[in-house]
């Protein structure tokens, strides 16, 4: 027994677990008024559909012969690193906004991420710094003054 497509297989399992968990939690929805099928009908049907689809995926990928392996993508370490960093930076940015306020957080985010992604020459660094400041305050102006939106 072999798993034809690892990704699909695990995705299927994940989805199955997800729909199970969600289905369980749907029991805590208070349905005092069981009006027109009640609030639990729709979500439950959908979860069942997801589960069915997931099972289909799992079954399709369990074969009894070794099917041709799709070429595994070379996991470029560098790309992974960059992605991870960007994601981490963004996460930090989002967490920090309520604490430090929009302007500071944005500045703190823009500079490192630009440095991370670009060439680190002196000329570029100054360019980044100027742009970071310009964008931060430019956006602040547009959003809060022109559009009257609240920024944290």
């Amino acid at each position: 027994m072999a798993i034809r497509n690892k990704k699909d297989f695990f995705a299927g399992i994940l989805l199955l677990v997800f729909s199970g968990v969600m289905y369980r939690s749907s029991y805590s929805i208070s349905s005092g008024l069981d009006f027109a099928l009640g609030p639990t009908f729709f979500p439950r049907i959908l979860l069942i559909c997801v589960a069915l689809g997931a099972m289909f995926l799992i079954l399709v990928n369990i074969g009894f012969q070794q099917a041709a392996r799709p070429a595994a993508e070379p996991l470029d370490k560098k790309t992974f690193f960059y992605r991870f960093c960007l994601v981490a930076l963004t996460l930090a940015y989002i967490m920090v906004i309520p604490v430090l306020g929009y302007a500071t957080a944005t500045l703190l985010f823009l500079m490192p991420s630009m440095l991370l992604m670009g060439e680190r020459t002196l000329k570029n660094c100054t360019q980044y710094a100027i742009i970071a400041v310009a964008i931060t305050f430019g956006l602040q102006y547009i959003f809060s003054d022109l559009l009257n939106l609240f920024l944290p």
């Binding site: 906004i97 985010f109 670009g118 609240f150």
Partner: peptide, 26 residues
């Protein structure tokens, strides 16, 4: 790209916040 993408992220983050003045959306 180095400049563009972080700026886009900032724009998106701010855009999402502006929807309902709520960090949840972000």
């Amino acid at each position: 790209q180095a400049i563009l993408y972080p700026v886009i992220i900032v724009l998106c983050v701010m855009g999402c916040y502006a929807l309902n003045s709520n960090m949840v959306d972000v």
